[in-house]
């Protein structure tokens, strides 16, 4: 069996969020679920403990048509344990600031 990567997804816009949340089990999974459920895919994700919480940096690309990244930001922000979501960078280029981690490696 071979994995087929949707070329449209690979070529799509890459957006980067920094998400500050409580250090609660399930929050990362909930963030990931919202992203995937709302017509975006997680391209890479880094989690770091911070004082009293967790900072998650996630790169996403749209899989659905006409998806607004601002709507996605608000949909993540309304999660109960999420304190703040910053849309760090909007780019049609692959951000160079930090290296993209292959999806499989994150899982």
């Amino acid at each position: 069996m071979s994995l087929h990567i949707n070329p449209n997804t690979r070529r799509g816009t890459i957006e980067t969020f920094t998400i500050i949340s409580d250090d609660v089990n399930g929050t990362l999974r909930r963030i990931w679920t919202v992203i995937e459920q709302r017509g975006w895919s997680v391209r890479s994700l880094l989690v770091e403990e911070t004082e009293g919480g967790v900072e998650t940096r996630v790169q996403v690309s749209p899989t659905g048509k006409g998806r607004s990244v601002e709507t996605l930001r608000l949909q993540i922000e309304r999660l109960v344990n999420v304190r703040h979501v910053k849309l760090e960078r909007r780019s049609r280029e692959k951000p160079s600031r930090w290296k993209e981690i292959p999806h499989a490696a994150v899982i």
Partner: peptide, 8 residues
Amino acid sequence: CDASEISK
């Protein structure tokens, strides 16, 4: 009351 509905 849900900001994510506005301009969705």
